[in-house]
């Protein structure tokens, strides 16, 4: 069984708020002095894939599309147990819209050949659009389930729990299929030290747009009309004085009341 996990490199969503800088002129957001990470939802997808591998045995291949992808960051997927890593890197892939990314992924998948299951994160931690996985399913013409909180393989079929408000839906599908995975699946496991060393030596596939036959005309850049920083979220830390917890509580209440 071959599972493909689509992973996106994003600025660390857990970066300290003061390190996040919004540049309205260039319409870019940067996290100053913070390393990019694998999109946390994609990490959940990878964890789901690894669990299937643990139980059923599978080949897990991680694919990432983008421009200036950090191999150091993506190689973490190998360290935790993925078998292969494919990086499709091109300057053209900077700020593509979701459908274009899905198109590029589909071209890469064509080159990769047969697969049984594709897992993606439910959305990316940078723009939170949540579209790429679903559009990719559409392009590939395979069953697609979103917002998955658990996934299993049973009798050659995929069984997934899809999140509903206050409930979940049990979905069973033929393979190949595509699932977009949510954080409820659980956090990505820690790598073990020995694998880490291997992960940095293991050869990986690095492809360009040409390698997978991308038609540049089909690529659409996001045309952002404006990007504004959030209102100043200045914090002010006050210590509530008081000799006992009760007194401190009282004092806090009075401050909150505006007294």
């Amino acid at each position: 069984m071959k599972i493909i996990v689509c992973a996106k490199q994003v600025p660390d969503p857990e970066a300290p708020y003061t390190a996040v800088q919004v540049n309205s002129d260039t319409k870019e957001i940067s996290t100053k002095g913070v390393a990019p990470v694998i999109n946390p939802y994609d990490e959940n997808a990878l964890e789901a894939a690894l669990r299937i591998k643990d139980e059923n045995g599978a080949e897990v291949v991680v694919i990432s599309v983008g421009s200036k992808i950090s191999q150091a960051v993506l190689r973490r997927s190998l360290a935790v147990g993925a078998d292969n890593l494919v990086v499709v890197d091109s300057p053209q892939f900077k700020s593509l819209d979701s459908s274009s990314i899905a198109y590029v992924l589909s071209k890469a998948l064509e080159k990769m050949g047969e697969y049984d299951l594709i897992l993606t994160g439910r959305q990316a931690g940078d723009w939170d659009l949540g579209q790429t996985g679903l559009i990719l399913g559409e392009i590939l013409g395979i069953p697609t389930v979103n917002l998955v909180r658990s996934v299993k393989i049973e009798d050659g079929k995929v069984v997934a729990e899809k999140i509903l408000p206050g409930a979940y839906e049990l979905v069973k599908s033929n393979l190949p299929a595509l699932l977009t995975v949510s954080s409820e699946v659980g956090e990505l496991r820690y790598p073990i030290a020995k694998r880490k060393i291997q992960a940095y030596k293991q050869p990986i596939d690095v492809w360009s747009a040409e390698d997978i036959g991308v038609d540049s005309d089909k690529l659409v850049q996001i045309d952002m009309s404006a990007l504004m920083p959030p209102p100043d979220m200045g914090r002010d830390c006050q210590f509530i004085e008081g000799d006992s917890p009760e007194e401190k509580g009282k004092n806090l209440a009075s401050i909150l009341k505006g007294g």
């Binding site: 390393a35 191999q71 150091a72 960051v73 973490r76 880490k196 940095y200």
Partner: peptide, 16 residues
């Protein structure tokens, strides 16, 4: 160094 970090040009040991 900060530029490297932002660009994900990292050293494994330091990532750990």
């Amino acid at each position: 160094r900060a530029q490297c970090v932002e660009d994900g040009q990292l050293v494994p040991a330091l990532m750990d």
